[in-house]
Amino acid sequence: MAETLMFNALREATDEEMARDNTVLVMGEDVGHYGGSYKVTKDLYKKYGDLRLLDTPIAENSFTGMAIGAAMTGLRPIIEGMNMGFLLLAFNQIANNAGMLRYTSGGNYKIPMVIRGPGGVGRQLGAEHSQRLEAYFHAVPGLKIVACSTAKNAKGLLKAAIRDDNPVLFFEHVLLYNLKDTMPDGDFVQPLDKAEMVREGKDVTILTYSRMRHHCTQAAKALEKEGYDPEIIDLISLKPFDFDTIGASIKKTHKVIIVEECMQTGGIAAELIAAICDRYFDELDAQPVRMSSQDIPTPYNGTLENLTIIQPQQIVEKVKAMVDGQI
């Protein structure tokens, strides 16, 4: 049992899977000699060589397509998006080929690949480096979408993603790389399709993911003191959703708040609320509520940036309002 920071937990996961399976390789910008923009692959090239830690030219669409071709022919590539936002340039390869090719090929090919890297709103990184692509990619069929949120689940989920036979978009968050956790010993693998119960409660179900999980737990601490008892679930899998866990919680609390960092329009919560209404409408005692980022490019100015994303105090107020019957 050792304490590890999240970036290192991701590194351990990569290292362990590369040692276990020689078809696993990493490719992307500065993943080799430089060690990755957040040091997730630091020094791995010394152990596995330049071909398995492939430093690519800055050509996102092409190296993503290359990884797809390699995956179709039997390798298990991990792509690091230096910043996940850069993968907008690879949208065609991710959507048309990673997402749809297995289907259009009638099952001829499988595409075991992981596309991972830092996303989310950091600290004054400007609009382009503060994107939440999970929402943009959500409609693409054939992709699994996962967001890690702790050092522990980062490791276990990444190992599972590498072993999965499908393309997995794996979202890390720029502001979480230095979170610390005690790591389980041995070969720790966490299933991709299971949500995580963060805090059990009876008053309201809060569904969240990535960094907003920590905003929610912070809010819960304040709420506890005032006698509120929210249940917090980290979705982990953004596609497909784990309705076993989500449904069980809704049947208990009958109230839902979704807290997300992506923009509201076309966001993860937009789809999740629709799906919850489809499945559990009769269980709900109140209108399901979403708390999302503003529908604007993330501003550089720190004050404006804080106003763009949801803050813990807003979650406190929303939970109180919902539990007190004001929604």
Binding site: S62, G65, M66, I68, G69, A71, T73, L75, Q93
Partner: peptide, 9 residues
């Protein structure tokens, strides 16, 4: 790029 990936493989 897909073909290039097969060649890389």
């Amino acid at each position: 790029p897909v073909a290039t990936g097969a060649a890389f493989q």
